[in-house]
Design a binder for these strands. Sequence first.
RNA 1: GCCAACGUAGCUCAGCGGUAGAGCAGCCGAUUCGUAAUCGGCAGGUCGUCGGUUCAAUUCCGACCGUUGGCUCCA
Length: 662
Amino acid sequence: MQVTLPDGKTLELPDGATGADVAKAIGPGLAKAALGTRINGELADGMTPVPDGAHIEIVTSKDDAWMQLARHTLAHVMAQAVREMMVDEGFDANAVKLAIGPVIEHGFYYDMDLPRALGPDDLPALEKRMRKIVKANLPLRRFALSRSEALAHYETLGDPYKVELIEDLPEGETITFYEQGGDDGFTDLCRGPHLPATGKIPKHFKLMSVAGAYWRGDERRPMLQRVYGVAFATEEELKDHLWRIEEAKRRDHRRIGQDLEIFTIDDDIGPGLPLWLPRGAVMVDEIETLAKEMEADAGYQRVRSPHLSKESLFLKSGHLPYYEEDMFPAMELDHVRYFVKPMNCPFHHKIYDARPRSYRELPLRLAEYGTCYRYEDSGALMGLMRVRSMQMNDAHIYCTEEQFADEFVGVIRLYLKYFELFGIESYEMRLSKHAKEGLGKKYVDEPELWLKTEAMVRDVLIEHDIPFVEAEDEAAFYGPKIDVQIKSAIGREFTLATNQVDFAQPRRFDLTYVAEDGQKHTPLCLHRAPLSTHERLVGFLLEHFAGDLPLWLAPEQVRIVPIADRHVAYAERVQQDLQAAGLRAEVDARSERMNAKIRDAELLKVPYTVVVGDQESDAEVVSFRSRQEADSSDVPLATFVAHLQAARDARALKVTPLSQGS
RNA sequence: GCCAACGUAGCUCAGCGGUAGAGCAGCCGAUUCGUAAUCGGCAGGUCGUCGGUUCAAUUCCGACCGUUGGCUCCA
């Protein structure tokens, strides 16, 4: 047989030759450096036979992809180390049952069913064993077994996970194993690809954590133990990665939220029920003001509704059969069950239905900062990002089918305006659809309508060149939606904005409008929350800005520092002028040294610190230090006030520096 | 919800079988000072809660509550 090399040359080889054989045929230097292969562009290892006529590239450490091989082999090394440790502790080797051990971004993990629980304290010892295995430089060997041999192997060992994996492999697929260290070493069912020997693994790896993980991600199946590790080609990359993790912790909104006195969560109040501290409440107020302005411009009307209602409302909306698990349990009053609302939509439907509607009124856009309560799983709660009490930037748009596309795009344009204002550049739009397997009890069972609305949403997005990805089984129970996914500082993904189509509830509520033809028709409803909830948005913004908020959002915009007591009067004069311009300013009149006051203002990340002493009070000027522009002195007070006012009014992300600006 | 770890003063953390300690924050006093911590003093905790073991528990064990990480990456 023959293969083609990257330079176009062909190479004649005996049948069954592997990537390593190709490297050997090219030259001894390359054979030594070879870590893996690319077969027709796809990453493979040197142990895998190459097919006749394939394009072959030899992967060396110059090819970044080689770390995938190293990470995969490390997963095996780790599993081997875990088993050795368990055996040394007196457990039977077969009590260590292996599930899966894939490569992930930056590293690897292995899911295992173990005779005892691992804790973080076990990681250093495990890592030590791993380094020993790496040092032993065990060569890897790849071999194939027939389906029945493979099944028999794992049935003998009593490993139900591997048995299940093999059973799920398509008939006729080659079932491969990788072995290292012979009979005393380690053998694992594995597709590969791997490094040729454990000694090729770079020593820049680290075990990070242990965690539980359901077998195949299914909560009805056994909980396995997962050990996570990271691995890099160089020490610098590893250090950089660990530094980034530390940096992310500093950005975590829970850290910043405490340091900047934005919110707190108190045991006596309950999990997921945050309290807004005064500084946080200022942020929320600013966000509400912003949304009110934007929505007034976009033709929304404001409404208000109660926090709870009778059961009948939620039966009608469909929340009770479909959503009850996520709702706080009912309270019973006079033999009637009441629920605290998890969403505002049923109330808005009733507002729509308060009187007959004409097509002339559509689209009707009803907006409310409704406070909702959802009984989220305790394990899902996280600071402000996932809570049980939340205030939504909510609105419902009732429109005709013809108006749908414009309204839908209008909402997406609203998102984009907000994102520009906040400087949000990293996000993903996701079209969330019902499960491929069908509708079932999770969703309103209207198959044709699902397909129709999903197609409508997709068409609108494509028509307007809005990039998106599609996701099965992520829809709301009443219809498909567009979510905007963002990542928190520590890398967890959250939905920020959402725009959902609802074809079910208007019908269930018997909502109608009279059209030009004099007939009653059912409107479509869009649920939209472009700014998510106040909680999640503030949490996200704290991380996004690392606490350095734009002037308009900053709870305290100016901190005025008098140098000595005799300057307090002038400091208060400065404060009054700022406050008269609607700016939030505080005077630090403590009996502290100026340096201490400046430090405290910096730690609170107050955007502007004004220092006033003899020079300033004599000349009616200010000297400021800023987190957003260069420090400046001898600025006339009125100029300074106007400067901040302009930045605030523009809701500028970055202040135009005074020296250059008007 | 499930698996694991953690829970000591407002915050960050030390102590770990003989009923608690630091720094910062707070309060009082002195200091009045030019761009990131002035000095001194005082006060502050039923060591998450409830049980158990023990002569004795913050410390050991159990349950509960709460927090954190993970539960998407499919040999």
